[in-house]
């Protein structure tokens, strides 16, 4: 490039030296663009295997249980030794809401108490890693039929596993088991809080050294909802002190009290629950 060359943007062509340099810059940017795109894409954490059958409605017949969380228990039969194969499907609502409201409306509308009755529900399935949930939406007329009250053999099998402290991450099961990827961790934290705040039952995701996972439903000491209480512990490592009960194919954690959930490590500028923070939180709200 001659020292006298001068670039003016509104001229039809750039001087030779500028044009040659710009070409080199374009090639460098091209390499940068592809490199960054490929590296960032392949370095992403593996997407979960969750499935959400969006737009596909399925009829499920089973026994509805209101507690500990709204769920429908579906039998597939018994083996030669008399053991049952069944699946308990927790119910959730449309969007970021629980199913309680819809079920209450259905009960009022039909003048019937659905608890422990065999019913057929129509909804959207979502599932991952052996756990199945069903979204019911008032717009889909989810209650197909109400049959008889279930027999004793359909009542949940409960096995007390004592009081334990279990470490894991609180997730909202709707996103985690199918609707979003990732449905866990910091990027999803706000959404999980919104879902749990909307009534979706919180789940503790527990991982062992091999990377295998278990998922336990969280309720209060007496089976009451504790959605509001768990909000500040979502998507962060926590230790949960709870009475553990195997409740059919789900494990239920009856959290001992409000202090039964505590964060593990992490930098805190101010102690959680301090007056300064609750004041800031109130101001923001």
């Amino acid at each position: 490039m001659s020292n006298n060359e001068f670039y003016i943007g509104w001229m039809p062509k750039a001087p030779g030296g500028f044009a040659r340099h710009t070409k080199k810059v374009i090639i460098a940017l091209l390499i940068l663009t592809i490199t960054v795109g490929v590296l960032l894409a392949i370095s992403q954490k593996k997407f979960g295997t969750g499935q959400f059958e969006f737009g596909q409605l399925t009829n499920i017949t089973g026994v509805y249980f209101k507690e500990p969380v709204p769920a429908i228990k579906v039998m597939s039969g018994k083996d030669l030794l008399g053991r049952s194969a069944y699946i308990t499907i927790p119910l959730i609502g449309y969007g970021k809401s629980g199913a309680d409201g819809i079920l209450l409306d259905l009960e009022k509308l039909q003048h019937v108490d659905l608890n422990k009755k065999e019913i057929t529900l129509k909804g959207t399935l979502l599932y991952n890693d052996g756990k199945l949930l069903m979204q019911i939406d008032a717009a889909d007329n989810p209650l197909v039929s109400v049959n008889k009250t279930a027999g004793e053999n359909m009542l949940p099998l409960q096995k007390e596993l004592g009081e334990q402290t279990i470490q894991g991450e609180i997730v909202d099961p709707k996103c985690f088991f199918g609707v979003m990827k990732p449905g866990e961790g910091k990027p999803h934290k706000d959404c999980a809080i919104r879902c749990i705040s909307g009534g979706i039952p919180p789940v503790l995701k527990v991982t062992n050294k091999e990377g295998d996972c278990n998922y336990y439903l969280l309720v209060g000491a007496h089976g009451e909802k504790m959605n509001e209480a768990v909000k500040e512990f979502v998507a962060t490592p926590v230790a949960v002190k709870a009475k553990v009960v195997a409740y059919d194919d789900w494990v239920i954690l009856y959290v001992t009290d409000q202090k039964g959930i505590s964060p593990i490590a992490g930098w805190q500028l101010v102690k959680p629950g301090s007056q300064a923070i609750s004041c800031i939180a109130r101001c923001i709200k």
Partner: peptide, 23 residues
């Protein structure tokens, strides 16, 4: 979206852990 509060309210009130680094 589709939560129990306006999305913009949700943006600022879902997570209020302004005292934490990682959260």
């Amino acid at each position: 979206a589709l939560g129990n509060v306006n999305p913009f309210v949700s943006l600022f009130t879902s997570n209020t852990q302004y005292n934490s680094v990682s959260q």
